[in-house]
């Protein structure tokens, strides 16, 4: 039996320099917990229950709103593993993430890896709508297959709009049934872990970092708007995370320095 579930989070500035969570709604396998934020002024929510979902045929969604001035981090307790559904007719699973951040809000969407297990099929869609002064930190990591197994079919679409205009639109598709050539020199070059790290910050209107390579299979690139994308390929999830973590630390430092000016 497939599952349909939508979890919802709304964060608001509480007027005292902190962030409140008037809406924190778990659903089905998507269990949300308010956790302690290491940074003052930020609320933090951890998705704890997505470990074994989604199975084929499941329809999962997470909706996160950071209202004007709110500061919210959403992370996860464990990786999400896409698994085959029960029976051959289960069909692909879908996982939809809708993010929005209002004026002066900061939203950090930092889930754990999405692992595409053998035989699974998942369509993942992430859409972020940002106010002109909103900040967004977003990380996505796709791991193709658990250790030593071939990957399932995975499609991920990431669409980010700022002030109603397109800022970033990417669609990645891998695995059996994906269009040909995905594993070869133009697309993945045989790598099994792919990651994106996006930092949108109006402070970048005052100066975007120059593009630079992070090793031979990762690059930091300024986008056409006030945003930076790190695209990384790695042999495995651990090496991928190391590249993205280091890049994130540097980018947050850059944007803090720009804001102080």
């Amino acid at each position: 039996m497939s599952v349909t579930a939508t979890a919802r989070i709304t964060a608001v500035a509480d007027g005292r320099g902190s962030t409140a969570l008037p809406l924190l709604e778990s659903d089905g396998p998507l269990a949300l917990r308010r956790t302690r934020s290491p940074e003052t002024g930020y609320a933090r929510v951890t998705v704890v229950g997505a470990m074994s979902a989604p199975l084929g045929g499941d329809r999962l969604a997470v909706e996160v709103r950071a209202e004007d001035g709110a500061r919210l981090t959403v992370d996860a307790a464990a990786a999400t593993v896409a698994l085959p559904g029960a029976g051959p007719d289960a069909g692909p699973a879908s996982y939809t993430v809708r993010l929005s951040a209002g004026e002066g809000a900061e939203l950090r969407w930092l889930p754990e890896q999405l692992v595409s297990a053998r035989g699974s099929a998942l369509d993942m869609t992430t859409r972020a709508d940002l106010a002109p002064t909103a900040r967004l930190v977003l990380r996505e990591e796709q791991v193709l297959g658990r250790h030593g197994e071939p990957t399932g079919r995975l499609s991920t679409r990431l669409t980010v709009r700022r002030a109603g205009r397109p800022l970033l639109d990417q669609h990645l598709a891998y695995g059996p049934g994906a269009p040909g050539g995905w594993d070869r020199a133009a697309v993945l070059g045989g790598h099994r872990a792919v990651g994106q790290l996006l930092l949108v910050d109006p402070a970048f209107d005052h100066g975007l970092p120059a593009p630079r390579l992070l090793g031979t299979t990762a690059a930091l690139t300024p986008l056409a708007g006030p945003a930076v994308l790190v695209t990384a390929l790695a042999p495995d999830a651990r090496l991928l995370r190391a590249v993205l973590d280091e890049a994130l630390e540097g980018l947050l430092k850059d944007s803090r320095a720009l804001r102080r000016r």
């Binding site: 990417q170 669609h171 598709a173 697309v187 993945l188 630079r212 031979t216 695209t231």
Partner: peptide
């Protein structure tokens, strides 16, 4: 919006 991560990375290199 189909994209090719390796082409994006190697273009910068």
């Amino acid at each position: 919006a189909a994209s090719a991560p390796l082409l994006d990375i190697t273009a910068e290199a």
